[in-house]
């Protein structure tokens, strides 16, 4: 069970997250949509303290962290229960595709190297990149880099996978292969919190769609309800704008 209560983030004095409450069931796939500048990235980044929230409680399984008094150990523990997929991939530039995936397993999870390597190769097969194991990120296309980025997150076996617009930085030709991989991850009933503008994709894989505006959750529910029969005006306007 994942639970977020009263999550608040201010930059200077403006509240970017204005007391977010969110519950996610294990295996649930939640898609967050909303206009840009609304706090979607900030929400994801606060969940693993890439941005430090000022208030709120984050619970992932048996770990509960009060943002106002989170210690360094709390933050590390939270990060070890989450996996993050970045918009700009953020692969380790000094490591090969395989090493990118192994890194957390060896350094953070302290698994034996052979074990980590076997897992990395397995993940690379799942992402269809086994022939790129020894390539450095600079030698990979955007689509391939993001697939490694997703593979790096998959290998962690974290309780919650966070995706921050994983296809927004990609050339259109690579979007399909990344969405395909995310579908496969979704089929494994991973718990996923995904920010995306791919409404069609949301309709396919989401158990629930959350609409954010102005640092708050305005409406949420099953995709059929939120995307096809929205009740909030701002949501209706947003959907019209993105062509739904």
């Amino acid at each position: 069970m994942i639970s977020v209560q009263g999550l608040t983030k201010r930059f200077d004095s403006t509240a970017v997250l204005d007391g977010i409450d969110l519950e996610i069931e294990p295996g649930e796939r939640v898609v967050v949509i909303g206009p840009s500048g609304t706090g979607k990235s900030t929400l994801l980044r606060c969940l693993n303290f890439l941005d430090r929230p000022q208030a709120g409680t984050i619970t992932i399984g048996d770990l509960s962290v009060d943002a106002a008094k989170a210690s360094r150990a709390d933050i590390l523990a939270l990060r070890r229960r989450t996996a993050f997929v970045f918009q700009n991939y953020a692969l380790f530039a000094n490591k090969t595709a395989k090493e990118n995936i192994m890194e957390a397993l060896v350094t953070v999870q302290k698994r034996p190297k052979a074990d980590a390597e076997a897992r990395a190769l397995e993940v690379l097969r799942e992402t269809g990149l086994d022939n790129k194991a020894d390539s450095y990120p600079a030698a990979l296309s955007g689509g391939q880099q993001q697939r490694v980025g997703i593979g790096r997150a998959m290998a962690l076996d974290a309780g919650l996978m966070l995706f921050d617009e994983p296809t927004s930085a990609l050339d259109p030709e690579w979007v399909g292969e990344v969405l395909d991989l995310m579908r496969r991850v979704a089929e494994q009933r991973q718990t996923m919190l995904i920010v995306t503008h791919e409404i069609q994709f949301a309709r396919e894989i989401a158990d629930r769609v959350v609409f954010m505006d102005g640092g708050r959750i305005v409406e949420q529910g099953p995709p059929g309800k939120v995307l096809d029969a929205p009740s909030d005006d701002r949501l209706r306007r947003f959907l019209r704008r993105v062509g739904q």
Partner: peptide
């Protein structure tokens, strides 16, 4: 950020 996100 990537290094932090994996819990280093």
């Amino acid at each position: 950020e990537a290094a932090q996100s994996i819990g280093m």
